[in-house]
Simulated assay, not measured.
Amino acid sequence: MFLADTKADTIGILGSIFCLIHCLIFPVLVMGGMLNEEWSSHAEWVDFIFIILAISAVFFAARQSKNNTLKGLMWFSVAWFSASILLHETFNLALYSSMAASVVLVVLHSINFKNHQQRFHTKNATA
């Protein structure tokens, strides 16, 4: 049961970390000439994968969470993350905003993971 409860948090943490790596390395590859601008315009689908992954991870993690404040923060952060990604072509600061939202999602999923872990061990200790 513990693995099923924490899978969404693990996916959320890994997805946010991969998004950060993508956001940091991809522009360097384009500026360094390893990828051309034409290719980068075709890679926008990656943004949508990160959004779908983040929303799915928050949906399943929030369903298992007992902490309503944490649930609200997770939903706010995934909305912030999604909006920032969708607007990064329009506003220069949106890229930095999406990276900050990714960091917040990593922290929130880590807290939720730890809460699940404590509940699981408390439940098994009393059984």
Rank of each mutant, 00 (worst) to 15 (best):
19 C>E: 13
26 F>M: 13
81 F>Y: 06
45 W>N: 14
114 K>T: 01
9 D>R: 01
83 A>V: 14
37 E>Y: 11
50 F>N: 02
32 G>Y: 05
105 L>M: 12
9 D>F: 00
46 V>E: 04
7 K>M: 09
34 M>G: 09
50 F>V: 04
115 N>K: 06
27 P>V: 05
127 A>P: 10
34 M>C: 08
8 A>Q: 05
42 H>N: 14
122 T>H: 11
23 C>E: 09
51 I>K: 02
69 T>I: 15
4 A>W: 05
63 R>M: 03
41 S>K: 11
70 L>P: 07
103 V>E: 03
19 C>T: 08
118 Q>N: 12
113 F>M: 01
73 L>M: 15
82 S>M: 06
98 S>D: 06
75 W>Y: 15
80 W>E: 03
61 A>F: 00
79 A>T: 11
20 L>Q: 01
68 N>Q: 09
119 R>E: 12
16 S>D: 02
82 S>H: 04
60 F>I: 11
52 I>P: 06
8 A>S: 12
113 F>V: 03
108 L>C: 14
102 S>R: 02
12 G>M: 02
71 K>M: 15
13 I>D: 00
70 L>T: 07
19 C>N: 10
124 N>F: 14
51 I>Y: 02
107 V>I: 09
33 G>E: 12
96 Y>M: 04
55 I>A: 05
53 L>V: 15
123 K>T: 14
63 R>P: 04
121 H>I: 10
18 F>M: 01
66 K>W: 13
72 G>H: 09
22 H>T: 07
33 G>A: 11
4 A>E: 15
98 S>I: 06
102 S>N: 05
45 W>K: 10
17 I>H: 01
40 S>L: 07
113 F>L: 05
12 G>A: 10
96 Y>T: 05
82 S>Y: 02
17 I>E: 01
94 A>L: 09
71 K>D: 13
107 V>N: 01
49 I>Q: 03
105 L>F: 02
91 F>K: 08
114 K>N: 02
89 E>L: 09
30 V>Y: 09
122 T>V: 15
30 V>R: 15
41 S>D: 11
107 V>K: 00
69 T>H: 07
83 A>P: 07
96 Y>R: 08
74 M>E: 01
68 N>A: 10
68 N>W: 13
72 G>Y: 07
53 L>M: 14
13 I>E: 00
7 K>Y: 07
112 N>G: 03
67 N>T: 15
79 A>L: 11
111 I>C: 06
96 Y>N: 12
108 L>V: 10
106 V>G: 04
24 L>E: 07
37 E>T: 12
94 A>Y: 03
71 K>A: 08
5 D>V: 05
66 K>E: 11
21 I>Y: 02
113 F>E: 00
18 F>S: 00
12 G>S: 06
39 W>L: 11
15 G>F: 01
97 S>P: 06
35 L>Y: 06
24 L>Q: 06
93 L>W: 14
88 H>T: 09
66 K>M: 07
64 Q>I: 04
116 H>S: 08
62 A>E: 08
18 F>V: 02
108 L>D: 04
88 H>A: 04
33 G>F: 11
27 P>H: 04
77 S>K: 01
90 T>I: 15
